[in-house]
Design a protein around this nucleic acid. Structure first.
Lengths: 135, 135
DNA sequence: CAAAACAAGACAAATTTAAACCTATTTATC
DNA sequence: GATAAATAGGTTTAAATTTGTCTTGTTTTG
């Protein structure tokens, strides 16, 4: 229930991994996937998502790789989620623009939408820095 | 991202539907599925989950059906989620008892676990009654 | 006993997720 | 300039999960 995708987990770990390095250090997908221990190709996709979302920066060519685009203080779990899985949509009617087979009788949409926003707020309050500090 | 299953949506709607009736009214799955507008057989499965979780009560035989087992005040979105989708597990390591391929270097588990609990608290604060009142 | 309804397992279809594959393009280095 | 290391990104395959159906059984009222 309410779980995130494996791709999200990969991306999250990669961001935390990068956050532990020097800010300017460029790390290859290969290194990250070996160090952390999962599919290189699949992590590469997650990194591309993170790049497009402005969370990571890529450097092409030999000695290339990725580094964070901004401070770990300014990257939240919500940002990573949106980058990799898209906008949060608790219910289908949230994703599909209010369309739903039971629109007529449904009274609980406003409340559920609020719940959706509150959940996202929790994710948005969790920065990568806070993940680094825990343990 | 972070969406609930269709089965959960069906179950939620059914519970709200029952909550609008008189407390002792027994309603068939057929009536609910026709009224609300989705697969009768599939809703039946959701109702069985709700029954096993002590949220609904079934009455077998002719004139049978379901009614709520308790007040809409005492049924939360979290209860319904657990009944239908099981315990909330944001990450795999939460579901699989801490096991994860990157245990060694992972520093962010405690924080993510807290996040998971906070999300569940939000769901647990949302009663079926609050859903009825909204709009 | 017949019909209406839940119970529950097995099966099938559809969708989503995860992973692999392949061909580019970029770029440092020799 | 050739080569090798790396990202870019599209296509396809495979696995897993979700969704839905089917079938058989049980309960209960009339």
């Amino acid at each position: 229930m309410l779980k995130v995708s494996r791709k999200f987990e990969y991306g999250l770990h990669a961001v935390v991994f990068l956050a532990r390095k020097e800010p300017e250090a460029v790390v290859t997908v290969k290194e990250m996937s070996l160090e952390i221990g999962f599919s290189q190709e699949f992590l590469a996709k997650a990194m591309q998502n993170l790049k497009r979302a402005g969370i990571a920066v890529s450097v092409q060519g030999v000695n290339g790789g990725y580094r964070l685009a901004k401070s770990p203080d300014d990257i939240t779990v919500s940002d990573i989620g949106r980058a990799i899985e898209g906008e949060p949509h608790l219910m289908r009617c949230s994703a599909e623009n209010g369309k739903c087979e039971i629109q007529a009788t449904c009274t609980h949409r406003p409340y559920m939408f609020m719940l959706e926003r509150r959940i996202d707020s929790l994710l948005a309050d969790t920065t990568v820095t806070s993940l680094l500090l825990s343990r």
